[in-house]
Nucleic acid binder design. Sequence first.
DNA 1: AGCTCATGGCGAG
DNA 2: TCGCCCTGAGCTG
Length: 269
Amino acid sequence: MPEGHIIHRLAIENARTFGLRPARVSSPQGRFADGAKLIDGQILAEAEAHGKHLFLGFEEGAWLHIHLGLYGGFTFGTGPAPDPVGLIRLRLENDGAYADLRGPNTCALRTSAEKAAVHQRLGPDPLRQDADPDAAWRRISRSGTTIAALLMDQKVLAGVGNVYRAEVLFRLGIAPHRPGRELSRAEWDAVWADLVALMRDGVGAGRIDTVRPEHTPEAMGRPPRVDGHGGEVYVYRRAAMSCLVCGTEVRTETHAARNLFWCPTCQQR
DNA sequence: AGCTCATGGCGAG
DNA sequence: TCGCCCTGAGCTG
């Protein structure tokens, strides 16, 4: 269940765990058996994330390209790896730790050129130092597509998913159905800056928290609540509940095949 | 036990 | 725009 912040965390955790000693690489499920054999016993030399794509670079030059999709996930553990339970596409292990990958959309070896092609088709990632927000602005400012859809388009912006999309638009009071070309440069700069801040927090926390201190249930004198996805948010998956700020019912609709959530009162800009 | 839905994305049509 | 990929959590019963 990953947006970009989780992938960046996985890059860090893989590097920390498998960057010093050779890793045994296998595919208990068998679907990645051939690829696993090619990198088995190598040291992880480099780990990098771009948006929701994870790249693990091994010492002999191969890149392991992983995309978790909607329900893929990594599990890390210490000590010897237990007998595989269920379908484990990829297992990395050394003497002290192991990592299991289940249900990824993509788990494949890439050459440097193939990896470059993936970067080429992705937009700037707010979590990367080399990100150029102007590249996203050029597309947004020319587009008649809604800003809600543009923020989810990985060619425009990499790493933002449905939660960050809904939350950043709420935090800036931007109506989600506005065409990209109707945003001002100042609005875009504010969206980018907020994504950088929110997603950096997300990397540190391992969850998405977007509610400002003055709007927490405690600060507003309301009973505390628990979100199913682990973080505290304004509108994501809060359909028909009252807006934390103004009390209006949070609205939802299917928008470009994804669920969109927004507050029609707070988001009129 | 079975059903639905999900923080994603691809390819067919 | 739809179906599919293929996993797990949270319901219902």
